[in-house]
């Protein structure tokens, strides 16, 4: 669940509490139909797939689209494929199918580690990678993983297809590079070089809760990348710390000190910035201790 700031309390308890507002619904049979519909209704429509982020938001009435376009049954977006350089994951691959994919386990073990932290089995059965990325909750795991893995996203509309790097995709809390008429259709992740080690670490109040802070580390020979989640309005790379550790992998204390200065967590009454900064430092130390010396 996303973190929602406390609003005015509603005093009326009735059948409509925590129910979605009214909307229209359609389930196009093809991507072409979905795109045509979306271009027609762009500003008033929302794409739904698994609905594991959108439906809570509708139930809280934080959004009120007039039309839901359900792409959840477009099977062509449910494949995981590979070539020599890349693994391509369809936007509708569920968290649970990602976790069960031997190809993902072999090439992108970071994702398998991260999925353990995403909600609970019943949510992972329906939640999709594309849905999570397009929702762009700053505490979501997969955005940070795609950033650490230097991935790119396929974005289509009736106007055509374009690729956007993960680093350019996330624009803020629930904000992305997606235009109102565009759909995220696939995620392309470069296969890490042989010998690459990837590590995912997270702190949450309870198993499956939204992260207070999380860290995705991909240590390739001569190139170490670290992305953080839950500490800014979007997943972020910590470039200075990455450069330091790429040049000097044993500079653990220095890196832990540096990463604390590199993040600027949002102010939040529950977890003050200093606390999240501390968590990031703890997570980095933990992650580095898991690297073979």
């Amino acid at each position: 669940m996303p973190y929602f700031p406390a609003g005015p309390r509603r005093s009326r308890i009735g059948a409509d509490d925590v129910k979605a507002p009214d909307f229209d619904y359609c389930r196009p049979e093809s991507m072409a139909d979905a795109l045509a519909l979306l271009s027609l209704h762009a500003d008033d429509a929302a794409i739904i797939a698994g609905g594991q982020s959108l439906l809570p938001i509708l139930n809280f009435r934080l959004a009120a689209p007039e039309l839901l376009i359900d792409i959840g049954r477009l099977d062509e977006l449910k494949q995981v494929t590979e070539d020599d350089e890349f693994v391509e994951i369809g936007a509708l691959v569920s968290h649970c199918d990602l976790a069960d994919s031997p190809l993902v386990g072999r090439e992108l073990p970071l994702l398998h580690q991260a999925i353990d932290h995403i909600a609970h089995p019943a949510v992972r059965h329906r939640g999709t990678i594309g849905g999570s990325l397009a929702m762009a909750d700053p505490a979501a795991e997969l955005g940070a993983c795609c950033l650490a893995l230097d991935g790119a996203f396929s974005i289509v509309s009736v106007r055509g297809q374009r690729w956007v790097a993960a680093a350019d995709f996330f624009k803020g809390v629930y904000e992305t590079a997606l235009q109102p008429d565009e759909i995220l259709t696939a995620i392309r992740l470069p296969k890490p070089a042989p010998g690459t080690i990837s590590i995912f670490e997270e702190v949450a109040r309870r198993r499956g809760d939204f992260a207070m802070a999380g860290l995705a580390l991909v240590a390739a020979p001569n190139n170490l990348r670290i992305a953080l989640l839950g500490v800014a309005d979007r997943p972020v790379l910590v470039e200075q710390t990455m450069t330091l550790l790429t040049n000097n992998p044993t500079a653990v204390d220095e890196a832990v000190a540096l990463i604390g200065t590199e993040v600027d967590p949002l102010d939040d009454p529950t977890y003050p910035p200093a606390y999240r900064r501390h968590l990031v430092q703890v997570l980095l130390r933990r992650a580095l201790s898991r690297l073979p010396q």
Binding site: M1, D17, V18, K19, G51, Q52, L55, P56, N59, F60, C96, A119, H120, P121, A122, V123, H125, R126
Partner: peptide
């Protein structure tokens, strides 16, 4: 009704899901 508690769990096409989030 927000996916947090699991009281609404049902099985949909062979998999458990949140009945309030479908």
């Amino acid at each position: 009704e927000q996916g947090a508690c699991g009281a609404c769990t049902v099985v949909l096409d062979g998999q458990t899901v949140r009945g309030c989030l479908v």
